[in-house]
Amino acid sequence: MNDELLAGRLRDAGAHVTVLEARGRGLHLRARAEMDSLEACALAVREAGLYPVFMTAVHTASGFVLHYRFAAAERDCRVMISSPAGPDGRARSLAPLFPGLQWHEREAIDLFGLLFDNHPDPRPLLLPEEDRGLHPLRKDAGSLKTPEQLGLTARPETGGEAP
């Protein structure tokens, strides 16, 4: 499956997709989806034979934004799918689709206090049991920025900027 086809699949799944030059952002496809369509996007990515690279979140003024990154093993194709988490960090887990994301999501639970609805094993991974409420990567209210200030929103006019 080539990148254009995968972009089409992701658009079908309900994501807003920007095709980027690899150089400049180290990325090829930047997809933004709502939480409801995240699983459909992940299914498209899995069908394309990509492996999970990482999962993480960013704490912004309008809540947490989840980021899932995938890459192809034998060709140059990197995909990032982001999706805003619900209020209080509620999210749908992709671990049932990619078991490799299970630990990354557990890490996000530790560090951000996200709540995954269907995570198979939502125990702390890195932090000890007694640090359950610590969530070190949450930011103070004063230092929070909006996704717009961070350049995380879709910007079609600049998204595909050439190096």
Partner: peptide, 16 residues
């Protein structure tokens, strides 16, 4: 402002 990423091949595999 914006997101930046890079990937290299470490001795153990994919580093991003």
């Amino acid at each position: 402002p914006g997101e930046y990423s890079s990937s290299v091949e470490g001795a153990r595999g994919h580093v991003t």
